[in-house]
Write a protein that binds this DNA or RNA. Sequence first.
DNA 1: CCGAATTCGAAGTCCGATTACGAATTACAA
DNA 2: TTGTAATTCGTAATCGGACTTCGAATTCGG
Lengths: 236, 236
Amino acid sequence: MSKSFGRDTAMAKRNTETSRGTYEGHRERQRRRILEAAERLFDERGMERATMAEITAASGVRASTVYQYFSNKDEIVWTIVEGVFAEAAARMKAAAEGAETALGKIAALAEAMAEDLAQRRATVRFMAQFDAMYAREWPAERLIALEARISKGGFAQFRKLIRDGVADGSLRSDLDANLTMHAVMNALIGAQRRLASLGDRVEKEYGKPVDDLFREASRVILLGLRADKNDGKRAK
Amino acid sequence: MSKSFGRDTAMAKRNTETSRGTYEGHRERQRRRILEAAERLFDERGMERATMAEITAASGVRASTVYQYFSNKDEIVWTIVEGVFAEAAARMKAAAEGAETALGKIAALAEAMAEDLAQRRATVRFMAQFDAMYAREWPAERLIALEARISKGGFAQFRKLIRDGVADGSLRSDLDANLTMHAVMNALIGAQRRLASLGDRVEKEYGKPVDDLFREASRVILLGLRADKNDGKRAK
DNA sequence: CCGAATTCGAAGTCCGATTACGAATTACAA
DNA sequence: TTGTAATTCGTAATCGGACTTCGAATTCGG
């Protein structure tokens, strides 16, 4: 509430014509320091277990100061989540761009997700936690803001991808682009997040790295999307 | 720690030969009362937000008494989770038993999951939360106990299902039963849990009930599992 | 009715999030 | 270089929620 009172009053006055963003650089640096410490701790201990005290200690910034940057722990979570989601989306987009056919793009996207699962497991786990706990109560504005960034990044074109795929014959003809897109994305993301959450547990029990399991799942899905040799006669 | 001291000492003595399980009935009833209140609250407010005070209030049992039944909130969560998982597994098993071919069984299983998603969304959401937050730190014993129950119930036969399917020609011949089983189960469960978590949000945005999205996802997966016409064996 | 088992209540501990606020420090404009 | 606004520090305090303690009151079964 009374967060940046100092800035909002006195500084606003000065800004009227003089030194724009005087302390901004420093503020930005501090902000990053806090976010980085928090992100690491969330990864290591889970966003529930990670305590404010730990975060402040790790960031080297006192608690009372942290609250001048973020009004509460949730704020920190949101901020990190937005960044993480946006980055993931960007990676997916980049991956998809490298492929030719629609089917190829989808495959590339799935492969990118598999790599995230292998190399950024903690981050994926973090996203899983977030989905499970916060997703339902996202304030609409946040959601919109996030989607805006992500849309530019990749997911949004997915529907078009399916439409294209049906058109160019690489995907089966009986697909409803909109429905299929959401269904497949949710299945892929769901599988990825779940595997990240179960992680080591699954690996210990079944010997395979979880990203292999994910790859097999996406292989099956891709097979399901692909056009039959004799597409057109077949309906389920 | 000092939970059931009364029972462990005085009553243990009596049990030596006399009134076995005297107060058991009542105790069991109380236990249920608490669990039911907790389950409802977890569904309504999430297992994080639901407070002990709320649970005790809703159950009509005082806090100090509740702690004679469960040593802490986590205990309650575990207990409910075990029941919920076991029930879900039983439903799946029942569903699979009604079908003939392996592919049919898998389809029936997926349909049962879709129905759970439609009719027990809160419960599925609950399982999603649990997976995301607790799965990594399940004590092994708990896990074993749960798996024992679930195995009897359904998941365990899934691998056999795939092997059978490959043998009877309803599934494509290049599947690795063990790998595919885990991959597909994780994809299905992951999709189901994710859709339950996002729930209304998804429905509002895209007009379709989430169970339809799930059905489409499983349709695609089933298509991916199904044997090609020219798989070398007869197709279904 | 007796005695064990259970519940109640109320007070209290512990811990983590968050706040309040004055003193100390830092950045920068003049 | 210096005065002042902006920022940080420390520390004490509040608050809510999980969990405990324990003696008094109540309930159950024989």
